[in-house]
Design a protein around this nucleic acid. Structure first.
Lengths: 221, 221
DNA sequence: TCTGTCAAGATCGTTCAACGATTTTATGAT
DNA sequence: ATCATAAAATCGTTGAACGATCTTGACAGA
């Protein structure tokens, strides 16, 4: 670890790496993450790994059981409902009060364009990422450091839920156009209409996720 | 560490302990927290301390500078303004949609009674704690795990700001009655009126804190 | 065969020691 | 007084160690 490239501190990088694996569905929910095993896989010491675990536990992505280890969080219906409640409050309000020339609008535009492009080529995972970036940009319209940080956390949890579901096309494709429509309203100077569209978007998305989740639950159990 | 009382895991307890010290103003903002020194003071190893540091850094109470150590966060006006924006959104909305028979209302009542009692005996620090408990209970009216967790974090940051200010009576006393009034409106089945009163409360509190903060800034620098 | 007990075995929780890398300070020369 | 350099203090990370706790599997008795 001496002469290697160390652009960033180890622990946050480690946390990001594990977060990516979680979001990518590389671990099953409820699965135990063995410290020795992950240490070996990620080539870090136990102490560093444990620091990263603390961060991810605080994010709600891992669950910590005393003397038993950390487990991948197992999202339940209550989590999904709670997350969507937060999204409605945060995103709709941010959009509603947004100024159409806010710099975050440009990022929304880029995200929509990327999503359109990638959905044409069938890269649904990238479409999902672009969608998430779009909504993160919406939150940034509110210009609140704390709100954006909170949303980042919520979004990671939601992506963990998505990871449970198997059909990314079904999960992301229908929303590309809705995002575009929301952005169009905002760019046209109608934030209230944009917020209303977003409200509808979220309602539909929640229904879809909950339904898929129920299906999984029934099949899995 | 073997035979001592270990009701809870060490690291979270450690984080709480440091958080309390921070809120109590035991460290100056911007002050560097030396790992060896705190290890000796708290009788824990460096690794455990570092894990606790990670948690508090994520809470915004500490700032982490690579290769330099952790520092007590130095709240600025932007933080205060941002925190109060969050409070307005979170608390007012929660109160507005609250059912007067929600269990959290009982906790609000207890907090108000405690605050009244302690303010009579001049224990302003306890009054401050009771006030914070009152507002945390307001947030719990929304029945959202994530929202309550987020608010806990915001509240800790705010208390760090309070810690900078010197006159706790001036800072807490005027609000005991306002809290009582807000609660009365809610108990009377008028959540909208309660929310309006809270809005006024927060506006006044924000002005007070910002003014005190400005005064400190001018005197200190 | 089933079940309850008990002894490994595997991990976790925590601490300690070590070492390179970086920052800060003390020192000394110009 | 200023700047370069050496010394001291930490930080970042690792590795090992040890008691405590959980899990597993064997074994004896019903």
């Amino acid at each position: 670890m001496t002469s290697r490239e160390m652009t960033t501190a180890l622990v946050p990088r480690l946390a990001d790496e594990i977060r990516d694996k979680l979001i990518a569905g590389e671990f099953q929910p409820g699965q135990r993450l063995s410290e020795p095993a992950l240490c070996a896989e990620l080539q870090v010491s136990r102490n560093s790994l444990r620091e990263a675990f603390r961060l991810l536990t605080k994010d709600g992505l891992l669950r910590h059981e005393p003397n038993r280890g950390v487990f991948v969080a197992t999202p339940d219906m209550a989590s999904i409902i709670d997350i969507y409640r937060m999204r409605r409050i945060i995103e709709c309000r941010a959009l509603e009060q947004a100024h159409p020339k806010h710099p975050a609008v440009a990022r929304m535009r880029r995200a929509v364009d990327t999503a359109l492009e990638r959905s044409a080529s069938g890269d649904w995972r990238s479409v999902g990422s672009a969608n998430m970036a779009f909504h993160a940009a919406i939150v940034d319209l509110a210009d609140s450091t704390r709100l954006s940080a909170f949303y980042t956390q919520i979004a990671a949890e939601l992506r963990l839920c998505f990871g449970l579901l198997d059909d990314p096309e079904f999960l992301h494709a229908p929303y590309v156009d809705q995002n575009a429509a929301i952005l169009a309203e905002l760019e046209a100077g109608r934030p209230a209409a944009a917020a209303a569209a977003l409200e509808a978007y979220l309602a539909r998305s929640e229904r879809t996720v909950l339904a898929a989740f129920t299906r999984i639950r029934e099949n899995g159990a």
